[in-house]
Nucleic acid binder design. Structure first.
Lengths: 227, 227
DNA sequence: ACCTGAACACCGTTCAAGT
DNA sequence: ACCTGAACACCGTTCAAGT
């Protein structure tokens, strides 16, 4: 297992091969097949370890205002995956092969976030959907960023490709291309999107409360569970 | 090219191989190498065709309120990729290998959306960031959905896996699992997230205008370009 | 200009055989 | 219980040779 992570981190997950790994471990290729009947089994085991590492690295956001909790959770999530591409590949791309245990542990994190949202006024329905939305957004940013980086082709990022395109028919982008990298996957891009989502959630929370027509505010909002 | 799409649609893009394709075309494997020096070249050519198909399938959203324009654009985008997995794989995963021409055409679509947003009051900066955010969200939903589907392992979707998990420590999710599929990638999930984003954009647009402190509204808001 | 089979390096996997 | 090499099917790619 450790050797597999060594090789994956050294090259990349999709270049990790059985001969590769065998050489690194200084054993015959077929020896690995005694521990893992298929390569898929090895990857599944690696995914379990990755999920464990990921969850341990996550910050405790309980006891915070829900806006701050969401912001911290997803910002840190993005940071974890940015720091470790192998972790990102295992967890992001192999979601459908999670073990029962890994799935349960991931959902326990979700549960604690939902609990926090509901305690601060969200209905369970809305709490779930808001979390799912932010999660999809964060995953989208991480995966899109990953895809733009892989295959060291000249990306828009370094400006080489950007200058090769004829922007004459695109006046707006032509001015923006000088200031931005146009990939929209930078730190500030991520924060911007997260802010817009949280802002949208705030509006939803306000509309969801009873007596929304009046300007009256309740100091502390209890759980408004429906259904 | 047509044969390559036939094979990819018949099996899947990552199972498309040169021997595969040669057999389908009833030619020797090496014959393909006269037209495409590497498999990568073939895939690049396929990506170009895919981008063309995608852009042609996109609806014209000009002349609409920006909220409706964004909603239609990204809803239709998701639909196109849901209908054609091969298109989705080529365009979503191979973004970094777009040809100059494909990149230009994609950005022309972006430009027209930015134009629409700016004409209705957004600064170029905010228009760009809002579009980028919605784009990342839509891409995230499409890719995440794709990942959950591939490898026909038992997913949470069909409820089999869901019932195998011990939800006893997760009271909130335990009640939600009965109503939802917990994947958060359904049509209503997507619309929910899109609504929250657009809602967040509306708040940004309102704050961005001069005289935000007063409740005064201007009937028609001209372009407020900064910098 | 277009197509071919033989050949090579690489991969995942099986199997019979070792200790 | 643990490890091995030989062997097989599959892949991408090259090359010398055909028409």
């Amino acid at each position: 297992m450790q050797g597999a992570f060594d090789v994956a981190r050294g090259i990349s997950l999709d270049k990790l091969s059985m001969p590769n790994l065998a050489e690194h471990l200084d054993v015959g290729v077929t020896s690995i097949y005694w521990y893992f009947r298929k390569k898929e089994d090895l990857l599944n085991a690696m995914t379990d370890v990755a999920v464990d590492n990921y969850i341990r690295a996550l910050p405790d956001v309980s006891g915070q205002p829900w806006q701050e909790a969401l912001r911290q959770h997803f910002t840190e999530m993005r940071l974890i995956f940015q720091k470790d591409q192998t972790l990102s590949d295992l967890i992001m791309i192999r979601t459908s092969t999670y073990s029962k245990e890994a799935t349960r542990r991931v959902f326990e994190v979700v549960e604690s976030l939902l609990e926090l949202l509901i305690a601060q006024g969200f209905t369970p329905d809305n709490a779930f959907r808001c979390h799912a939305t932010a999660s999809v957004y964060a995953r989208g940013m991480i995966i899109h960023d990953r895809i733009l980086r892989l295959s060291n082709a000249p990306t828009l990022e370094d400006g080489r490709q950007a200058r090769m395109i004829d922007w004459s028919s695109m006046p707006i982008l032509a001015t923006l291309v000088d200031e931005y990298s146009l990939t929209g996957t930078g730190d500030s891009d991520f924060q911007f999107g997260l802010d817009r989502l949280i802002c949208g959630f705030e509006t939803l929370l306000a509309e969801q409360r009873p007596g929304q027509q009046t300007g009256e505010h309740r100091g502390q909002v209890g759980p408004a569970i429906r259904a």
